[in-house]
């Protein structure tokens, strides 16, 4: 009897062990399938996560924004930043609010106040996983691209982010206007032909 009790408890736990990752997959896949795509300007650097592997950290221009002087933004609760698209086609964030606005928005947290009129927030996406061979290469290409384009303070690189109901999933990374994997493959082919 005790053994069957343990068995039931174990089966319930196993169901939970499957439910947690599967519910995450379902949640994020819905954002990928049905969310609106936005392009966010970014600059990648290449660190490593001991559990999830190699990735490129993305520093987004949209994470820093101008806010009304004197306005206060609590750092201990989520805020909601509306998304607008500039003439250049890149997405930017409006000063965050305490309640979800109409239209697409991102759920953000305050990172720090730069000065009275500028605020830096933590976005719900900050990394793009690549395998350990590609990640350093992506960083090198992005750095080269940034050197070539001094006109902008951030690299001519961007990330495509799908947004739905405040949830965001990063789906692709572009360097020099080309998807990162394709860009790396091109660079490798060029290197091979030189040799």
């Amino acid at each position: 009897m005790k053994r069957y009790g343990c068995l039931l408890a174990l089966l319930a736990l196993f169901a939970l062990q499957w439910a947690l990752p599967i519910s995450q997959i379902q949640q994020y896949q819905q954002v990928v399938d049905r969310g609106t795509a936005y392009r966010f300007r970014t600059a990648p650097v290449d660190p490593v996560d001991p559990f999830r592997g190699r990735y490129v950290t993305l520093q987004f221009a949209a994470a820093e924004m101008t806010v009304p002087a004197g306005a206060s933004y609590p750092s201990d609760q989520p805020l909601y930043a509306p998304i607008t698209v500039e003439q250049s086609g890149f997405a930017v964030l409006q000063p965050p609010r305490r309640a979800p606005p109409e239209g697409d928005y991102l759920t953000v947290r305050v990172a720090h106040r730069i000065d009275d009129a500028r605020l830096r927030v933590r976005l719900p996406f900050d990394r793009y996983y690549l395998n350990e061979r590609l990640a350093p290469e992506a960083e090198r290409l992005a750095r080269d691209a940034m050197r070539a384009d001094r006109a902008t303070s951030l690299a001519p690189s961007w990330a495509v982010v799908r947004v739905r109901n405040g949830e965001a999933v990063l789906t692709d990374l572009f360097i020099d206007g080309v998807p990162v994997r394709q860009r790396i493959a091109e660079a490798e082919r060029a290197l091979e032909s030189e040799q």
Binding site: L20, P21, I25, R52, D126, R127
Partner: peptide, 17 residues
């Protein structure tokens, strides 16, 4: 194995830290 499965979901969807 559960920790690895959960980590891979984060990797697949490029979830932030």
């Amino acid at each position: 194995a559960f920790a690895a499965a959960l980590a891979l979901v984060g990797q697949m969807y490029h979830l932030s830290s």
